[in-house]
Structure formats: C-alpha cells, structure tokens
Design a protein around this nucleic acid. Structure first.
Lengths: 156, 156
DNA sequence: ATCGACCCTGGAATGGGTTCCAGGGTCAAG
DNA sequence: CTTGACCCTGGAACCCATTCCAGGGTCGAT
C-alpha cells in the first residue's frame, strides 16, 4: 500500500501546480501535512490530488485560502460547514455581479472616452497637443470606484 | 499673486485626496514638485488641482502612475504623447473587455454551482455532509483564468 | 506657555495567491 | 565519484495604488 504514496513532485504534476504551491497550501492549512519518509521527503496519500484540485477550484470562484482553511478545519472537528460554504459562495456571487456592473460601466466610459478623443485628435490635427488626459476630467464618467470592488473585495 | 498658492492640505481638500497621496504623486513624478515656503511647506500653483484630478481620472480608467509619469515627462520634453495615450487607452479597453468576458463566465459558473449545491443539500438532508467544495471539481466549469487577467494585467 | 491644527521626512504596511531564492540534503544512474 | 534530478527550509519578492507611521518642525490663537 505504501507504494501508492506520492512525492511532492509527483503530486504537483498530477494536480498541475508547483511544489512551492503544495508547501504553501500546507502552511496555510488547506492541505493536510504529509507524512514523511525517513529521508524527510513528504509522502502524500493519493487523495491529496483531489484536495489540491478542490482548493484550486474553490480559489477560482473566489474563496480565499484562509476561508478554505477554516472550512476544512471545521470539517476535521466533525462540523458540517456546508451552510457556511453556500452562504460564502452566494456572497461572492454578489461581489462578482457588483464587479460586473462596475466593469461594464467602466467599459462604456472608456468607449465614450475613445470616441471623444478621436474627435479631439481630428480637430487638433497633426503635431498638436490634444490634451487627452485632461479632457477626462470633463467627461461625466463617474471617476468613483471603477471596478475597484472586484479587485478589493473579491476575497476576504 | 503669491496668495493664490495652495498648501498641501488645501490642495488635498480641493482634489478630494489625502496629503499623503499628493506627496506620493510627487515622488512618482505625476505631480510637479511644488515650490517651498521659507518654512519648508509645499506651495502648489492652483493648476495642480487640475493635474491631480487628471491623474485620478486616468488611474480610474486603468493608467498606471508609471505610465502617467512617462507621459507627462514626454510632454515636458516638448513631445506629443497623444498617439501613445490613445493606444494605451485602447489596449486597456481590450483588457477590460477580456475581463468582462471572464467575469461573466465566472458568474455563470457560480450560478450553476449554487444551483447544483442546493440540489445536493436537499438530497443530503440535515446534519449530513454535502461535500460542496469537492463537487466543484466535477463541474465542467473551466477553472482556468477566471477573471484573472483583470486583476493581473489591468495596469502595467 | 500651551494647545491644536497644520506641515515635514522616508520608509514600511496593506492585500493575498503565487513564485523565487539561497543554502543545503538524498539518491540512483553513469 | 560525479552528474543530475529530486527534495528540504523559511523568508523574501511580486504587483502597485494607497495608507500609515514615528519622530519632529511651524504657526496662530487662547
């Protein structure tokens, strides 16, 4: 049975990640600490591959490693974090939708900006300054958040 | 005429930013170094307010401070960076559009995920583990980039 | 004289997943 | 015995706009 244990490089290749990342996941607590061979090498049980994939998928939809760590820890204590997990995911969905709105607004603003700039460039002619950036302050575009909520609050 | 000069706090209030940010902008080179009063206080010409607003607007649509610094420097050397500015903005628009696509895909993936989870939760019943996160690896959702291009490459 | 409001400096912190690094072992094949 | 592939460690670097900090001046008003 012991032959089925994986060394870090093997697991990394299977999961499509770097060995650095495996160690990082272990540090954070989203991947259980592997047992060690006599020489100190990590030996992972095969199901670690699934765990790594789970972590990656979860991160991809917005879970932070810290959240995942808490969730797995709750499970290990016999808890049932499903309710919490669902709630978190829904929260993240709302953030994504909020970001989509902001990003769409930004896209419109940028399109409008380019349109105005081309106008200005045509009017200014060659070798003339068009002061494009300055004209930004004249465009009604709300220079507020601009998709910042996505970059800031996507994870927490 | 000298009465029209602004101290950092005044300019900051006018532009709606912190004095820390003004100093930062000066360091980076997007805000010309202010002259100094005999006591060492910065004294800004009134047009600095416009400059600060320009920087903020530019940052809001994706320009990095480093890019802006280059652009303003080019101008100061008598250059005409309008062409470059337009090209940069268009590039940023493409990034935003790319991000929108990814984010929209992520939204769909998350909606689908929640739907499946609710199904699983109903099947599992109360007090049962539903292994929600694990089920992520079974969903066809491309766990690829997931709007990463926005977070990574928005500025450069 | 003292209080509060303002200003100065440069460097560090923030966030957070991921990568990179130096300095050092293990082991099998050639 | 050497080469090369693999593994170990903990801490730093990355990105980058913005904020925070400590330690220290300046100034007008009470």
């Amino acid at each position: 049975m012991e032959q089925r244990l994986l060394r870090s490089g093997q697991l990394a290749k299977m999961a499509g990640v770097s060995t650095d990342l495996l160690r990082h996941y272990e540090r954070i607590g989203v991947l259980p600490a592997a047992i060690r061979a006599p020489n100190g090498y990590r030996l992972y049980p095969p199901q670690s591959a699934k765990r790594v994939c789970t972590v990656r998928s979860s991160v991809a939809i917005g879970f932070s490693l810290a959240e995942l760590s808490r969730i797995f820890a709750m499970r290990d204590r016999g808890g049932i974090p499903c309710h919490k997990v669902r709630a978190l995911a829904e929260e993240k969905l709302h953030l994504v939708e909020q970001s989509l709105k902001e990003l769409e607004a930004l896209r419109r603003h940028m399109c409008e900006t380019l349109r105005l700039w081309d106008q200005r460039l045509a009017e200014a002619g060659r070798g003339r300054r068009a002061e494009l950036l300055e004209s930004l302050t004249e465009i009604p575009g709300k220079r507020k958040a601009a998709a910042s909520s996505f970059k800031k609050g996507f994870r927490k």
